[in-house]
């Protein structure tokens, strides 16, 4: 079970959280202006990266806040968690912490 560091509550066990998939996919401001293809991409297409991946997490059974995390999908190590609205930290795979 992962140990997830909530930016508000600190390290907490994974069962208190829900993972919300890839982060930084903003809902288009004016969906009606998107073509069917563009809209389908927004809805359905995700990167499914091996390695460092920015994803959404919700501390569902804690403070109930959404936040983002950089996680290495191969090793399951978290590189960093950060609040909604903050920029994705610029990190490379070598900088993971144990």
């Amino acid at each position: 079970m992962l140990l997830v560091t909530c930016p508000y509550c600190g390290p907490r066990p994974e069962i208190e959280f829900r993972c919300g998939g890839e982060a930084h996919i903003a809902r288009p401001a004016e969906p009606s202006k998107l073509s069917d293809k563009e809209w389908a991409e927004f809805l359905f297409v995700r990167t499914n990266a091996k390695g460092v991946f920015a994803e959404r997490w919700n501390h569902a059974h804690g403070c109930q806040r959404w936040f983002n995390a950089l996680r290495d999908t191969a090793s399951d190590r978290f590189i960093q968690t950060y609040k909604v609205g903050e920029k994705r930290p610029d990190r490379t795979p070598g900088q993971e912490r144990l």
Binding site: G20, R56, A60, Q64, W66
Partner: peptide, 13 residues
């Protein structure tokens, strides 16, 4: 509730 919170917190804060 989770659906509403998600949009409120992440899309329309």
């Amino acid at each position: 509730l989770a659906h509403m919170e998600d949009y409120l917190q992440t899309e329309w804060p």
